[in-house]
Design a protein around this nucleic acid. Structure first.
Ligand SMILES: [Mn+2]
Ligand SMILES: [Mn+2]
Ligand SMILES: [Mn+2]
Ligand SMILES: [Mn+2]
Lengths: 221, 221
DNA sequence: ATATAATGTTAGACTAATCTAATATATTAA
DNA sequence: TTAATATATTAGATTAGTCTAACATTATAT
């Protein structure tokens, strides 16, 4: 286990690499809100610790060791979030910032107990998979709400964004993980989408919001 | 709120000052396991932040501001310990080290929720008082088990030591907070003490152990 | 009252994590 | 293919927190 700072770098490299496999110094600097030379020197350190593979002007890649470390931190983050919601009764919109701190707590006992109390959960309150103690994660299809056609029905399975303002927005629209929704209308002009909830209530979402809502199609399959 | 390091200094100054009011640089260095000059420079910083009052070669004294800060950290530590025992089902001997980390979590919401779930508790699993959100602590008499005479009966109300090895020892002797005990014998030679538990079982304790067990006399009053 | 011991301070160095300014490399666009 | 742009690296400085070695002050014990 490295320092808190090292852990945050590793975690960010992991999440940025999920799409592309490789991460650039500038991306990481943007994400961590530090300057390029700061990232440059930290990457050298992480490379010397064999957490990342790096050659100047090439991208950054986590080693197996680095990947294991990343998954361990992500596991703690997501277990913490679910615990905060399920056991402590906090809202899904307020747990991310607390989990950012709890993910650095070093206590196998603490996390084993959380895992046990939650009955070895597979997904966090935002629908993200929780790596098991070996770092294994359950794969899931991630279809965006925008990829549904008018008339299609689906279940909301995850959100691709942790930020409080985004989740507050979903709360205001009564959208939650597990909800069944049907596409009523897709606007050509601004790409906004209107849904119908199980309660028959209709809600309108911008493209930007719909994009971050992930669903499992029901009728299409 | 200062850094994690500053918080640990403030907390240690507070606990060392409980007896005497004033704390010496060397005491603090011993407690924090750092060298004298390290403490010296940190004290200067804390003085510049008005957390402590300090003049060279005099003792260190927390200011009101410093005291408030200390009580806030101690509150979080003790709430965390009780939460870990009562809600998460961990043993009183294993929670201190986790609380050392959780006490630095910055989230009023997290701690307000713990407080609420525990129904605004006054004491932690080791019998230490939990400061309320204004820093107010319930006073308690702290009579050592060694101060009882043969034949006297008392309730164990607290332990003056958080360390796992000590609490493991008490677990092995079936001693817990709330237990009613009676002094059966006090040895003159080695100052050891023999108690009888409610179960009629007798247990022998060394002076060193008995000293750290705090009780509330029943018959004497 | 002075020597000795205990305690505290200063000076200077080191590591981790950050920054700015200057420079280098790679990509893209004329 | 050269110029412009984007991206990355190096050099050198800064702050927090720590250290060792040398020196200073206070307390204690002849
Ligand atoms: Mn999160
Ligand atoms: Mn999440
Ligand atoms: Mn404790
Ligand atoms: Mn305690």
């Amino acid at each position: 286990m490295g320092s808190l700072t090292e852990e945050n770098y590793i975690k960010s490299i992991y999440s940025l690499s999920q799409a592309t496999g490789e991460v650039f110094v500038s991306e990481l600097a943007r994400k961590l809100e530090v300057k390029l030379p700061t990232v440059n020197s930290m990457i050298k350190k992480l490379a010397s610790k064999k957490m990342v593979a790096y050659a100047p002007y090439q991208g950054i890649k986590l080693t197996e060791k680095g990947k294991r470390e990343a998954l361990g931190i992500i596991r703690k983050h997501r277990l913490a979030e679910l615990f905060l919601v399920k056991v402590m009764g906090l809202g899904w919109e307020e747990v991310h910032d607390i989990a950012e701190q709890l993910e650095h707590v070093n206590s196998p006992r603490f996390y084993a107990r959380i895992d046990e109390l939650l009955n070895y959960p597979g997904f966090d309150p935002h629908g993200e998979p929780i790596p098991d103690s070996n770092g294994k994660i359950q794969l899931q299809k991630r279809t965006s709400l925008n990829d549904l056609a008018e008339g299609e029905t689906a279940i909301i399975t995850a959100v691709a964004e942790d930020e409080k303002s985004f989740l507050d927005h979903l709360n205001a629209k009564s959208l939650q993980i597990g909800n069944r929704i049907t596409i009523v209308k897709k606007e050509l002009f601004d790409c906004s989408i209107t849904l119908q909830l199980k309660s028959k209530k209709e809600v309108m979402l911008t493209h930007q919001v719909a994009e971050r809502i992930l669903v499992d199609k029901l009728n299409g399959k």
